[in-house]
Amino acid sequence: MVKLFALSIFYKGSAEARLLKSTYDLQSFSFFQRGTVQEFMTFASKTIVERTQPAMRQSVKQEAYMCHVYVRADNLAGVLIADHEYPQRVAHTLITKILDEFSAKISADRWETGSDGTIDFNTLPAYLAKYQDPKEADALTKMQNDLDETKIILKNTIEAVLERGEKLDDMVIKSENLSMQSKAFYKTAKKTNSCCNFS
């Protein structure tokens, strides 16, 4: 499915990444799962930003999803969570464009202490809606040409992004940003048989 789920902007501080702005499109998830999904998406975005070097791009596959991350040299970072079928080139171009706009509007001295409530930058929802159709990116052709796709680091799971000795299971349990409900959800997600309905 060609689909965007979440778009967020972080400041990668020395200790941890700080969420500055985010938006979600979770209509395709079932109603009572949306809260958990949003928490996990924010958790995954933050985790990956913290493990991405400045001036680096990564695209991390997690099952059917892709987390596209770009941390600029000045530590401003953008994350786009999309379905794995969404074109990677367009995803990274979009992140670049949004970070450019963000840094033009919000001065760098406010990044370190800013938060969702204090920062006045409200165009993320409109972008998330517009770029659901990647053809919209045709207008960004010039930018796309500047993007060197071979420099994007590809990872097959979130685990592959973690540092030596880190375990995703432990991080989920310890996370202060995940609710009890979400942690319970994580534990109950187990082996599944998706295929066959026998009858």
């Binding site: 998830f29 999904v37 996990f40 099952e63 059917a64 959800f185 994580y186 997600a189 082996k191 599944t192």
Partner: peptide, 13 residues
């Protein structure tokens, strides 16, 4: 859409 595919514990993937 089912979120279990996103939050799958690490031992099975």
């Amino acid at each position: 859409m089912d979120f279990t595919s996103f939050a799958k514990p690490s031992n099975v993937d």
